[in-house]
């Protein structure tokens, strides 16, 4: 169902390991290494989020929490959330206590690249209207591919131009979905 549940089933070895013909600049495979800190932080953040939502629940206009009103269900959801977040945190703490190694979760590798990709995404969001779909998409594609580890610039540029021009014309001319032309005289 979800795009990623495969991992949870744990039965499937990673097909990508036997990589052949790796390109220059491609990222190293970095798999599960032990770090119990991630889930702990997550637990704390979730509790904090729950408290934030609790204040938002109380900010909903109306008095009381009668089940027919607009405040009841948000309250219920928030309270259960807080309870479960606490259970989650305790679970993680217990687990850490049980095994000194902590649980096997993926370390946040390549976090620099994640940040870079997010910056690119945000820049893309702001550029698309003033600059126009074709140019911003092509530039975004090339830079995103590089962040994702591509090392073949010529190929990326070719694909980027083809993709952005193709998408623009198919969507605006054939499918009638508006995309901004921006600085290009289209």
């Amino acid at each position: 169902m979800t795009g990623s549940d495969s991992r949870e089933l744990g039965a499937v070895p990673d097909g990508g390991r036997a990589g052949h013909g790796a390109e220059p600049g491609e990222l190293d495979v970095d798999d599960a290494s032990s770090s119990p800190v991630g889930p702990l932080i997550a637990g704390v953040v979730m509790i904090g989020f729950g408290i934030l939502m609790l204040t938002q629940t109380l900010a909903i206009k109306g008095e009381g929490f009668e089940p027919e009103g607009p405040r009841f269900m948000p309250m219920l959801a928030t309270v259960v959330w807080l309870g479960l977040s606490t259970v989650y945190l305790v679970q993680q703490l217990l687990r850490m206590a049980r095994s000194r190694d902590g649980l096997p979760v993926q370390r946040f590798a390549h976090s620099g690249r994640v940040v870079a990709l997010l910056v690119l995404l945000v820049a893309y969001a702001y550029a698309i209207d003033p600059v126009g779909y074709i140019i911003s998409t092509a530039v975004f594609f090339v830079s995103a591919a590089r962040v994702l580890g591509s090392g073949v610039l010529a190929r990326d540029v070719t694909v980027a131009v083809g993709l952005s021009v193709g998408v623009y014309f198919v969507f605006t001319r054939l499918l009638g979905v508006y995309l901004p032309p921006g600085v290009l005289p289209l």
Partner: peptide, 11 residues
Amino acid sequence: VLVRGRTRPGH
């Protein structure tokens, strides 16, 4: 995918 470094084509 980026964080796990799985950016190589699979076999």
